[in-house]
Design a protein around this nucleic acid. Sequence first.
DNA 1: CAGTTATATAACCGTCAAGGCATGTACGGG
DNA 2: CCCGTACATGCCTTGACGGTTATATAACTG
Lengths: 101, 101
Amino acid sequence: MPVDAIAVLAEPTRRRILDELRLAERSVGDLVATLDLSQPAVSKHLKVLREAGFVSSRTAAQHRIYRLEPGPFRALDAWLAPYRRMWNRHLDALERHLEES
Amino acid sequence: MPVDAIAVLAEPTRRRILDELRLAERSVGDLVATLDLSQPAVSKHLKVLREAGFVSSRTAAQHRIYRLEPGPFRALDAWLAPYRRMWNRHLDALERHLEES
DNA sequence: CAGTTATATAACCGTCAAGGCATGTACGGG
DNA sequence: CCCGTACATGCCTTGACGGTTATATAACTG
């Protein structure tokens, strides 16, 4: 991975942007309006998200439309997988315990 | 959530600690040895992980044994869920495309 | 209970990243 | 073409965070 996907997600504002984009594509201006943040700040976060592969942009007239890209989310899911196995073991143990009682 | 679980995971050293603990419980000294980091640094990371619920500790003689706790991992998985739906839609679209060809 | 081992905390420092303002750039409309 | 709109970039300040050294606390050991 070129940049650290999890570190990118650590920023709450960036997660808010992703939540917005999960619902629909958005222009930068749209995001500025809904996030109540300065336009440069939003653009900078979008740059970080873009370089980490979380979003892509296309130019539509004088607007830039941003959309989600699934790749890094899948990478995060893959990172989580071994831990998921762990908590499934916990669940199994709990089930066995419940069956015994 | 009291603390931001994703921000806690943003630190590479903390992820290394979690990777170690995924394999087995470890004392602080064990972690210091395998991570090649000062003992205070490790203790501070463990404190952050503890307060975020990623690990718990028990006292065994003069050692403190740390172990993973699944809770925050499950929370992260839950956060990821709506995005997982998104990339599954992508997969569905890809499958339809392949069927058509 | 004095010394030693294992871990936690304190104080300090350097770095880095997020935000604001000012400015640059690109694109369209008149 | 030139102006206005939409967005990006540069610069600066500030606050949060990770690391180190030094010190405090806790628990076993003889």
